[in-house]
């Protein structure tokens, strides 16, 4: 008898193939993946142009930061975070909507393989949705996210790891509590927006909120972005802290997912998934 491998790229490939079939089956959905990031980019880009261009406008550090693209840069990075998590969660929701969970969990597919396939799809969805928008940002507003080079690589790594941690935690809740938890997929990340200081420095927050903000990896990215744009310096300390927090949060998310999966088996809810 052939021994089953404990982790199989073939099975990850099978799941990625399944999600890519879904993606290709609906061009309106593919366009929608670009639509919201584009709307956001245009809105904040024009606001930035207005703030810079109005008579007697911004001065000092605000002018420097916004003139360098801190608003449009932040909105693009925010969309990487938001769409990264939603891309992960959307793949999982597809299984619940299709009542396919029992088929998957009684197949040889391991939970790790399932999770890796959702991470892969999250990246593919980002490529489809975000790459064109970042290129349009160069054309419309002269802001080139790619020109941030190594800094962009670090920002992306921190944001996507956090996005996957949130996605994994929500997936566990969906397994355990079913589609009653679906709203979390669309809303949970928005709690991060004010606390993660996407558009303003942490110093703006009340003193008692600041420790909460610094406990979130995205805060280090948005502070780091402002540092790169204003001081032209990549703060390695911020990036290291962001990645370290990510590692802790991802481990916690994985533990929660595993516990919620076991709890779903205890409660018999894996057989009752779907609408």
């Amino acid at each position: 008898m052939m021994r089953e491998q404990s982790f199989s790229l073939r099975r990850v490939g099978a799941m990625t193939l399944r999600y890519s079939y879904l993606l290709r089956s609906s061009y309106p959905r593919m366009l929608e993946m670009m639509y919201w990031p584009l709307v956001q980019m245009l809105t904040w880009g024009f606001l930035q142009a207005y703030l810079i261009g109005r008579p007697g406008g911004l001065a000092g550090a605000d002018a420097t930061a916004i003139g360098a693209g801190s608003l449009i840069g932040a909105v693009l990075l925010w969309d990487i975070l938001l769409r990264g998590q939603q891309g992960f969660s959307f793949s999982f929701l597809e299984e619940l909507w299709a009542r396919n969970i029992p088929n998957l969990f009684m197949s040889p597919l391991r939970p790790t393989e399932f999770v890796v396939s959702m991470m892969t799809m999250s990246l593919m969805r980002l490529v489809v949705g975000m790459v064109p928008v970042t290129l349009l940002a160069i054309w419309f507003f002269g802001f080139n996210l790619w020109a941030l080079g190594l800094a962009f690589g670090a920002f992306f790594a921190i944001l996507i790891l956090f996005a996957w941690s949130v996605g994994l935690f929500v997936a566990g809740l969906l397994l355990r509590y079913g589609l009653g938890a679906e709203n979390l997929v669309w809303s949970l990340m928005f709690v991060i927006q004010p606390l993660g200081c996407v558009y303003y420095p942490v110093a703006v927050l009340p003193a008692w909120v600041q420790p909460i903000s610094w406990a979130l990896p995205p805060t280090y990215v948005f502070e780091g972005l402002r540092s790169v744009l204003i001081d032209h310096a990549l703060r390695a300390d911020l990036m290291a802290m962001g990645l370290a927090l990510d590692a802790v949060l991802f481990a916690l998310a994985w533990w929660s997912f595993s516990r919620l999966l076991e709890s779903a088996r205890e409660a018999g809810s894996l057989l009752q998934t779907g609408e």
Partner: peptide, 30 residues
């Protein structure tokens, strides 16, 4: 699990995938 399988009318397969695509995915999983 690789040597077992199951069928139930109460468990579905993804509706938007064609029959061939659905079977291809499960064939690769197994």
């Amino acid at each position: 699990l690789g040597r077992m399988n199951f069928e139930s009318p109460y468990v579905d397969m993804p509706h938007r995938l064609t029959v061939r695509q659905n079977l291809a995915v499960f064939a690769r999983l197994y």
